[in-house]
Each structure stands twice: as C-alpha cells, then as structure tokens.
Design a protein around this nucleic acid. Sequence first.
DNA 1: CTGAAAGCGCTTACAG
DNA 2: CTGAAAGCGCTTACAG
Lengths: 327, 327
Amino acid sequence: MKAKLEDVARLAGVSPTTVSRTMNNRGYVSEATRMKVQNAMEELNYFPNDLARSLFSKRTHLIGLILPTTANPFFAELTFHIENLCAAQGLKVLLCNSLNQIDKEEQYAEMLIRNQVDGIIVGTHNRGISNYKRANLAVVAIDRYLSGTIPVVSSDNYEGGKLATQRLIDRGCQHILHFNGPAELETPAQLRRKAFEDLMQTYGLPHHTYELELPLDRDHQLSVIRRAFDEHPQVDGVFASNDMIAASVIYEAGVRHLSIPDDLKVIGYDGTTIVSSLMPQLTTICQPIEDIARTAIDVLLREIEGEFDGIAYQTILPVKVYDGSTA
Amino acid sequence: MKAKLEDVARLAGVSPTTVSRTMNNRGYVSEATRMKVQNAMEELNYFPNDLARSLFSKRTHLIGLILPTTANPFFAELTFHIENLCAAQGLKVLLCNSLNQIDKEEQYAEMLIRNQVDGIIVGTHNRGISNYKRANLAVVAIDRYLSGTIPVVSSDNYEGGKLATQRLIDRGCQHILHFNGPAELETPAQLRRKAFEDLMQTYGLPHHTYELELPLDRDHQLSVIRRAFDEHPQVDGVFASNDMIAASVIYEAGVRHLSIPDDLKVIGYDGTTIVSSLMPQLTTICQPIEDIARTAIDVLLREIEGEFDGIAYQTILPVKVYDGSTA
DNA sequence: CTGAAAGCGCTTACAG
DNA sequence: CTGAAAGCGCTTACAG
C-alpha cells in the first residue's frame, strides 16, 4: 500500500504535524527529529499526496491548455514550449485538443474547472468563454479574442501579412492569391488577410482571397487550391496563411508544371522548426513561438497572483521573414 | 467565491449527503428534492471539486504522458491521438516533454506519482523506471523496453526496416546508407537497423549505418549526413529511420546536385500526416499511430482495472509502405 | 427517502 | 521545539 504521512509519523515516532513541518521546511524542527523523519520517509518511499495538499492550499499548480490540435506543426511547437516553460516553474499542463469543436471546448473548460486548475491558456475560439468567466479563473488567450477582458498574446499578424504581401510584390507578382482559414474563427490571423488586401489595394493590384473550411485537412485544401488556380490561370504569387497550405500550393503547382519561383512565388506563414527542417526552401513568415509561449505564461502567472494592474490587454510580438527560395 | 457542496445544500434546504446523492445519481432521492437541489446547483453555478472527490475515491482519471518532445511530427500526432482517445473515455492527460533527459524524466515520474495519476504512458527510455516501480503504478511503454514487466506497444520495427531496405534493393540500389538514432536509447527502432543490416547481408551487399546523437537537431543531422556522403560518394540509396532525417538527406542531395530518385533513392520512416502533407513525394514506412495510441490506452486501462492476466507483454502492430516518388 | 458522522491525506493556527 | 484539533470539499456506510 502507498505510504501516507501518518505512516511516516508512526515510524519516526513523531506527530503528523512534525512530519509536515520537516517536509515543508516550515517552523522549528530539531536536527535529530528531522533526521528521524527523513529516514522514515526514505524507508517507506514516501511521496506526499498533492491532491490533499491542493485541497487545503487551493492551489494545484495545474494549467489547462486548450488548442485545436497538437497534430499541426505550429501548435505542436507551441505546446512543447508551453509545457517546457511551465515545467521549469513547477507548473503542470493538462492538455486539451478541441479540434475547434465548440462542444468539446466547453466540456474541456468545465473539466478544467472541476480539476481546480490555477489557470487556462486558450488557443481556440470563444464560445466556451461563459464557462471561464463564471469561475472567474485566470485565463490568457493565444491569438484569439475571447472577450474584452481576457488578455491576448499574439504575434504581429498585420505586419506579417504586410511583409508577406510586400515580398511578393517586390518580386514582381501582379496576380496574387491569398488562402486563409475560416473567418468565423475570428482569429487575429484574419489580420493577415486584411494586411494583404489593404496592401494590394494600395498598389492598385487585384486581390483574391480564398477561405478554407474546417476541418483543414489536406484534401479540402487541395480542392480549394485547384479551384483557385482554375479561376485564376494568370496567378503568379500565393500568400498562404500557414505553411501547410503553402506546401499544398507548391504541390499543386508541381502538378500543373508551374516552376517555383519562376512561374509562381509562394510564401507561407508560421515558420516552425518542423517545417523549416522538412521544407527548408519555403519562404515564410516566422512567428516567435517560444516568445509567445513565454509571454502567455507570464501573463497568466500575473493573473494568478492577482496582479491585474500590470497586465496589458494585448501583447503583440514581432515576426520576421524567413528567406527561402520559393518567393 | 466558488460555491461548494455545502452552499448548495444550504440553499436547497437539504443535507450535504442529499446533494451528493442527487449529483451522483446514487441512492434514493425524491423528485421534489432532486429538483430543489438541481435548481440550487444552477443558481450557484456549482461545479464539484474533483480534488476532493479523488481524494476520497483514490481515482483521479488522470493519465501521465511522458515523451521526448511534442515538437516532432511523430510524437505530436501520437500525443494528439492519445489525448483524443483519453478524453473520449473521461481521462485527462498530463503532458511531460522529457527531451530524453534522464533527470527530467525522473522528476516527471515523481510529479505524476504525487499527483496520483491513475497510470502513465511512457515514450522515453528507461532509467526513471525505479520511480514507477516503487509506486506500483499502471504503466505502459510505447516503443521502449523499460523492464521485463512493463507492457510495450510498438509497431513492427523489424518488418518496417525490412520493407524499407527491400524497397531500395528492388529499385536497384547497391550502396545503401542507413541513418538511425542513438543506440543508447535502446528503442525498438534499433530493430529497423537490425533488419537493414540483416537484409543487406542476405543480399551480399555492403551496409553502412550512421548513428545520430542527441539532441537530434537539423544541424547535427546535416553534419552527419555530409560526412556520410563524403565517405560514400557511390551512395545510391538511403534508409532514414525517421522522416525528418530523410528530409535532410534529400536537402543535402540537392546541394550535391544528386537527382532523386534517379541518382539517389531515399526512404523515410514514420509516415505522419504532417509529413505526408508537407512532403507528399517522400516514400516512407507508415506507423499506425492512432492504433498505437488506442492499444496503449487499452493496455493501460486494463492494468488500472487490475486485469493483469489478459495483458500481453508485447503488442506489435503492422506497418506499411507509403508510395512516394523518392524511392 | 433523508441526515449526522467519520474519513480521504494533508496543513496550519493554537497551545504548551 | 512538538502535538492535538480543526478543516480543505467531497463520499459513503450507518441510522432512522
């Protein structure tokens, strides 16, 4: 059977209070009894029960992480960095893949509340928010506007959209297509689209945006891309709102015998390590994924500590172009 | 303040016992009081505290997942499936990225024990095992031999190695190089290497295996690949033990103006959805990632339920070749 | 059908 | 320097 504090106390011949004190280094304990207790703990292979501790302290050091899916390079790396940085601070991560399904997200939110997490990092849309609010829980959003009060951390999507579009224009593209996720998700990623359309307008160029639907699987991507290419045979540039889409565009270009970057220039978005290993040739906009993770955690910790003053509603981190050979 | 069961009881004018009973649908409760209690729960926006419940029930429905890193397509997708399948069964996942660091893994194991997880799924090596054993916890390993008693789930690595090698030989390769991870990790992935070497020997062909070291970053991969190519200018085939390495091989081939598949044939390993989206041209061995996840969870649940009888020490799932154009 | 009591494994005032 | 008692928020025998 698992040893508990009482067992340690009995073996060491002291009270539970004393065991607790030596374990937590709180209050006075004589060196002699400290040794006795420590020996007893080792002998019984004792590990304190964090459930009991948390029940009393009302702190679980648990963080909920809600994302669409880790099976996507951007979120996979974001998850990695969040978990890593959390672990370094003694925080534990409960992972939730909502697949952008509203009902799942609400279930996850409730589950996290029941588990008394100290805070939640959300990278999905906003419907389940009612659950968060009612529990007046610490929440931080990554790249999503959940409400007027929940802090948002993102990279500079408008600037990223501008950089990508400018790059294509500078390289001589006249007929540029843009592929983006569903507008209904209300992500700041829509700013990439806005930047694209604004800049094209500024240059007096026609702009064409294609919206993808959920789920964002490859077959769906390809079907939209094919339609777009059919509708715009003059296309000479593509700005894809993520690297997976860019890869599909490049694939379809191959099928159509378009040479890249001569006939068609392609620029992606995200710039994960995974993609830069698999497709080092892809020109793309790099998001500072680790910084996003770090900032989100900082904001969340401040909320947890109750420092609501110093928290910016919005934190926007810089992006940069990765120079590949596709644009 | 967060409402607790006692608040609900007070508002409904019943005892805590009755609230608990209606909440859990256990024992008799009259329809009238059931309604009163439910109304009170809604009014107070009550969510039960799972910490308290678990403290009593000794079941947390928490599963620990220890992996090298989710920032890698294979583990990213494995993590996705594991979390997804767990959620469908009411299990919650505590994520741990050990980065193959022994000390981290031990810390995670201890953390999971303190948090009273019902079980652990491990995809890393074996040193921290002492911690698992002592807590006599339910544990299942994915693709790692942790001890003679912990069940292992993996795909058929030997068969995968054979399929890959055979493919290259069938395509006429005479001088094949193999790249694999560090032997010290003692993974069944070493069976891929063994299969390669066995088969090459059977065909009377020379075999050359290069071992990569940790951390498996792209620069290190490329440096080993360059050395290998320098040492074997006659190379006409490469079997890489994962798709990331295969991608780097293809990259280096491009630098050396080797045409694929004419001058050099390359086959990878893992066959994730991510890689098949980004590099659909890559010929590779597909692991049944979702099946691995499902099987690991099944085994773990059986251990948790205490059915030690029906559990196979080893479950080996089939792999298959994905037909790309690189080999 | 309902409630008072004890207990899950800890911690912290409060006494001494 | 040390311990007895009460309590964290639940649940389940046990009575009635």
